[in-house]
Design a protein around this nucleic acid. Structure first.
Lengths: 194, 194
DNA sequence: CTGATATTAGTACCAAGTGCTAATAGCGGG
DNA sequence: CCCGCTATTAGCACTTGGTACTAATATCAG
């Protein structure tokens, strides 16, 4: 005996999920039934035709790509700054900043907020990050607001260096700590850093 | 005057890149030419038909999904991966990634590439970064291609930890080194990390 | 005015379907 | 053994979004 209708439909579903690019004709060969039977099965299971399945997959990923573009100019909004001393910025975590699977913010957004704040605090035309140590203490989820507070903890003007500590909190709970060794870039030495 | 052939083809290319789901008929309306002209244009530009374009997008993401890791959420493009061992990704630095004043890439892009590669290499549903140490050795400019190589240097399965080292180079010159302490997220402990 | 290029029109054909009708197969109960 | 039911198969017209090809027309430049 070939397979009961029910069994075949179960397997059909699996097959299509596993490989959405399969045609009715290929499925008809796989299950040794007519193409019409496959089509009836798809109808009963509400499985769309090949082209619609492909399109669906494509639209999904296309939208994902559009979403994953961000990280543009300034990350977060600076709400207070005293150059060379301290600065505060806020960053609202939105759906596009988190892992889809568990809604936890991806690390580079926390880093980006902290790092751009460290850059901003430098009273300099431009500053570059040289070294950094980070601790991701607690996961941050979509909908939460991260408050990052940066403080200049050490200055070495002769070496064009400054050290900045950034503590990020959500509802007064520390979620991230980063220390940044910053290089003050003056106009005569644009090329190298290390 | 409508548009020259050349102008139209340039715009056509843009239109299709922006929205690969557009049909020849829609394009013919957009540019006020016949469907045949659109088809000739596509031929000259070697742009495949709608269904092939959609399929291409779908196949791309489907293959990514089959590898079943958050590869679709990686910054940069993964060109080689051996789960739990090593991985390589490339990231092309574009104008939107650099400081306008001196064309140097912002640090968080280098971090994002390295960190997401560290996440991808973990053979795990989801991994989170716990700690990280970074060195920005040389500035990277727009137009350059960063090659990041990640290696798992230590595993502590009992603690759900792994240590990943990422070295990023431009033209064989090391520009960035990062070490990441990663937390393997298993289904029973979803909540806390620190 | 002649040629070359660009554009449009029209036909036949294809893949992978939908939607519909109709025929047939297999089996179980009375 | 026939009735009724479900399952399966077959066939046809039609759809989308094209390809491949031929032929006619438009436009412009020398």
């Amino acid at each position: 005996m070939k397979l009961t209708k029910r069994q075949r439909q179960t397997e059909l579903k699996k097959s299509i999920i596993e490989n959405p690019f399969v045609t009715d004709e290929e499925l008809s060969a796989e299950f040794d039934v007519s193409v019409q039977t496959i089509r009836l099965d798809r109808m009963e299971l509400s499985i769309p035709e090949l082209r619609e399945r492909i399109k669906h997959v494509a639209v999904k990923t296309f939208e994902d790509e559009v979403k994953s573009l961000p990280i543009d100019e300034v990350i977060g909004e600076i709400i207070d700054i005293e150059l060379d001393e301290k600065a505060i910025s806020i960053f609202d975590v939105k759906p596009e900043h988190v892992f889809q699977r568990n809604q936890i913010a991806r690390g580079h957004h926390l880093f980006a907020q902290a790092n751009s704040l460290a850059v901003a605090i430098m009273n300099e035309e431009l500053a570059l990050t040289v070294k950094s140590e980070l601790q991701f203490l607690r996961p941050v989820k979509a909908g939460q607001r991260i408050v990052a507070k940066a403080t200049v903890i050490d200055r070495q003007p002769e070496k064009n260096r400054a050290f900045v500590k950034v503590v990020s909190t959500v509802d007064q709970v520390t979620v991230f700590i980063g220390t940044f060794e910053m290089y003050r870039m003056t106009e005569q030495s644009e090329g190298e850093v290390g």
